[in-house]
Design a protein around this nucleic acid. Structure first.
Lengths: 191, 191
DNA sequence: CCTCAATTCTGTACGGCGTACAATAACTGT
DNA sequence: ACAGTTATTGTACGCCGTACAGAATTGAGG
C-alpha cells in the first residue's frame, strides 16, 4: 500500500464536524462548502477530495447525526413494544430538533448509510415484536418515520406557541398512532 | 387613488403562474427569481415590484396551490367524518404530489394565507364533528397535516418501488391514524 | 395642451454560491 | 537525487438573490 503524496490536513470527519458546527450556528442555509472550507482553513475545493459534491456532504452529515442515537437501548425485549417505539421516536425527535435545519437536509437528501439502516431495522424489529407481520411492520415503520420527520419539520418551520406544546403534540399524535397500530394487531391483518 | 405611472406588464398572478410552471418543469430548485423573470420576458428585479423577496413569492405559490382544493366537498355532514377526512387528505396529497417540490417549499416557508387557513378550518370542523373537543381537534388536525406533508416529502425524496406503493402506504398509515382517533373519541378525553 | 408627479420596469453591480480545470506543493518509495 | 503520487491551491465560470439609480411611460391638474 502506497502512502505517497502530500500529507493530509483534512478528513471526512473534520469536514462533517465543521458542517455540523455551521448547522448548529446558522441553520441549514449556513451549511455551505465555502463555509466549511473557511472554518477548517482550507480552499473551498479541497472539500471535493473527500466528497464528490455538496449533496454527498449533506448526506454524510445526516448519517453523522443518526449515528448519535444508541439503538441498543431500544431493543430490550423485556420492555413493552409501545414504550420502546415511544422512546426511540422521542430520542430521534430530540436529536433532529437539537440541530435545526437537519430535517430539511434529510428531507432534501434522504440518507441511506449504515446508521440510517440500523435505525430503520431497530424500529422494524420492535414493530415485529408487537405482533405485526413483515408487510405491516414495514408500513408501520414508514408511518412512524413520517410522523417523526414531519413533526420536526413542522416544528422548526412554525414553532408552536408555548414552550413544550411541540412535545405535547408530538406525543399526543404518536399515542393515537400507536393506538391505531395496537388495534390493528388485535384485529389481525385486514380481512 | 392615483392611477398614474407606467402601464403594468406584470401582476402577482402571472408571476405565480410562471413560478408554478417552473416548479412543474424542474422541481423546487428551478423556482428562481431570474427564471420567473425570464419566463415572462422581464428584467429579474421587476419581480420585486410585486413581492418583497423570493420567500414571499414562494409563500404565494404555496397559497396558490392550496387554493386549488375545493373544501366545500368535504363539509357535507351527511357523510361519515372518516370518509371526509380521508378524502381531504387524499386530495391534498394528490395536489402536492402533482407539483414535486411544492412540499419542500411549504416546509421551508409555511404559508398562512386565507386558503391555508380555510383548509385548516375545514379539517378542524370535520374533526369536531367526529366528537373531539376543541383541544383534541387541534392536535388531531396537526397530526393529519403532519402525516400528509411528511408522507409527500418522504415520497418525493425517495420514490418507493412499485407504482402505487406510495398511495398504499399513505392510506394504510392514515387508516391506523384514524383508528387511533376514533378510539380516542370512544374512550373520551384522557382521564 | 403641457407639465409634473407617480409608478413600473431596466441597467448595472455586488457578494455569495457550487464546482470544473490546471498548476503546485509535499510527501514516499526507488 | 529522482520520479511518481497525491492533497491542496489558484483561478475562473455561470448561477443565484437583490440593492440602487435612472429611464420610460402614464394619468392628473393647471
Amino acid at each position: 500500500m502506497d502512502k505517497r503524496g502530500r500529507r493530509r490536513t483534512l478528513s471526512e470527519h473534520v469536514i462533517l464536524d465543521a458542517a455540523l458546527a455551521l448547522l448548529a450556528e446558522g441553520g441549514a442555509d449556513a451549511v455551505t462548502v465555502r463555509g466549511i472550507a473557511a472554518r477548517v482553513g482550507v480552499a473551498p475545493n479541497a472539500v471535493y477530495t473527500y466528497f464528490p459534491d455538496k449533496a454527498a456532504v449533506v448526506r454524510g452529515l445526516a448519517e453523522h447525526l443518526l449515528g448519535r442515537v444508541n439503538h441498543d437501548r431500544f431493543t430490550d425485549p423485556s420492555q413493552p413494544w409501545r414504550d420502546r417505539v415511544r422512546a426511540l421516536a422521542l430520542e430521534l425527535r430530540a436529536e433532529l430538533l437539537a440541530h435545526p435545519g437537519s430535517v430539511h437536509l434529510m428531507l432534501g437528501h434522504p440518507p441511506d448509510g449504515p446508521h440510517t439502516r440500523a435505525v430503520r431495522e431497530t424500529l422494524l424489529a420492535t414493530l415485529a415484536d408487537a405482533g405485526l407481520g413483515p408487510a405491516d411492520a414495514a408500513d408501520a415503520s414508514y408511518l412512524v418515520n413520517v410522523h417523526i420527520l414531519g413533526s420536526v419539520a413542522f416544528e422548526v418551520a412554525a414553532p408552536p406557541g408555548g414552550p413544550d406544546v411541540g412535545t405535547t403534540r408530538f406525543r399526543w399524535g404518536l399515542d393515537r398512532l400507536l393506538d391505531g397500530l395496537a388495534a390493528h394487531v388485535a384485529t389481525g391483518p385486514p380481512r
